[in-house]
Structures are given as C-alpha cells and as structure tokens.
Design a protein around this nucleic acid. Sequence first.
DNA 1: AAGTCGCTCAACCGCTGTAAT
DNA 2: TATTACAGCGGTTGAGCGACT
Length: 279
Amino acid sequence: MTMVEGFVGVRKGAWTHEEDNLLRKCIEKYGEQKWHQIPPRAGLNRCRKSCRLRWLNYLKPNIKRGEFTEDEVDMILRLHKLLGNRWSLIAGRLPGRTANDVKNYWNTHLRRKTVSSKRLDWKGMKISTNQNTEKINVIKPQPRTFSKKASVRMNAKITMELENKRELLGHPNLYKKAPPPPPLPPSSSLSMDTPANEIMWWERLLQSGEFVQETPATTSRIGWSDGTTVTNFWAEKSPMFAGSTCFEVDKICLSKHHHDMEFDADIWNLLNTEEEYAI
DNA sequence: AAGTCGCTCAACCGCTGTAAT
DNA sequence: TATTACAGCGGTTGAGCGACT
C-alpha cells in the first residue's frame, strides 16, 4: 500500500453523483491511465483504486447492464471451466461486462449450480466435489513463455491427449484432421460437457499448427491483445472465442500491462497434465 | 407492523507482478 | 541488483432491499 492509499483522510463508501461527475469529466479529459493522478486532477478525496474501480465497474460508457443472456452464461461456464476464477480474463470475452459483474454473477447464480458429482480432475485445475464449497484451484503454471523444447513437448502432449479422448469415445478416427475443416457450429451449440465437443474444441485449437509459434527470441507465446482489431485467428479455432474482440499470436506485447489478457499460462496448465476424465 | 433472513452487488482489502529508479 | 511505486487482480465485506414469518 502506498502512502497515498494509506492516508487516513481518504473518503470511502458509496459514491455520490457529484463524485461520479468529477471522475467522469476527469477521465474524459485525461484518459484511463495514471490512476494515481486522477484523484488530485479530479478534485476527489478518493484513493486511485477507488476511482479506477468506480470507473471500470460503473461509469465506463460501454458497460452493459441488466440480466446476463443465455449465451453469456454459457460463455461464463465454459471459460470458468477452462480458466478457473480468472474473472478479468472471462470478462474480457464478454463485451460490456466487468470482472466484478462476472464474479458476482458467478457467486450468486452459478457456483451452486455447477457443483455436481461429476469428477473432472485436471492436474492444476482441481474441482472439488464438496457440495458446499466448490473450489477450483488453478495452479499458476508459469512460465509465460515457452522454450523451444517445451513447445515440442507441449504439442506432443496435446496430440496424445486427443488420441486418448478418441480412444475413450471408442472412435479412434473421430475428428482426425481432415482438411478443410468443417464450418464451426454456433458457439451455443457446442457444450464442453460433451466429450465429443470437447475434443472438437481442442482439435480446432490445434488445427492451424500455429498454436506455438517461434518468436525472434526463440521463445513462444500465445495470448490475445486487448482492444485491437479482430483477427479471427482464435475465433477460427474455438467456438469459445468466436465473435470476441481480438486474438493475436505473438503480438501480445502491445503495452507494458498486457499480462492481464494473457492466456498462455492457462493453456500450459491444461496441457501439462495427465488428466483423468470421468465420462 | 416489526423482526429476521437471505440475496445482490458496489466497494474495499490485501496481495502480486511489473516498471522505474 | 535492490528498492520503491504503481496497476490490477481475486477474495471478501457489508449496506440495502425484498421476501418471509
């Protein structure tokens, strides 16, 4: 905590209309950056965190209000299954929704619903079967960059994983690569709960062969950038990301704070596993 | 009508990662 | 290389409100 944030006289609690207006005008003038400068510039007796939160969760113009749609709920469920409690990542896939909104919605509507007897135990993503306190513990599997060696190992692992799933389904040739790939079904029609669809999902992820790309630094990264144009790169690989704002590979270092939108560590999580699937 | 309970969601807190020095 | 400051995240809290007794 900084000196400013720890300062005793800083106002807390609910925001007034007047404070909202001051903050809004200040951000319109100076932009969404250097939050520590916002309170003095706006003439607000609030800490920078409070200002940032108020703007991001309430005042920002494109924030979507009201009930979550069926598609949004579906997306939250899928992404949570994949990412765990990475609310900002999940919210990044839902235009107009904030991480706080998603987190609150999950805690109030979905957490209990998702508790089931089905055991899905991924190494690094353990889902407890405790009826009251489902906890998804996502181990942070850094590195965020993959070495060349690790990349090869990872691709082999994915391939093996897909083979295992095909075996489990009793259809060894199911979803074997067969160019050209079939058109993507609508995201809402693909459920990750269905093993076949899950295979299809991962198959799409791998189809391009660009899953791991070499950078000049001989390391590989995968991720998405924030707020730039749509590349459809990932949208073509996974229904989960279809229609989302942007995915780019090896172009993620757009700002010094790009890490909040990174995805690589999570993929690493999923792949560096010896899963046991209950089908 | 009054009290209690449970739910929702805005806001706070503590922590981590990163950049700057 | 170590230290400091900042940005941002997820977990948690508590005020407000409606439903219920």
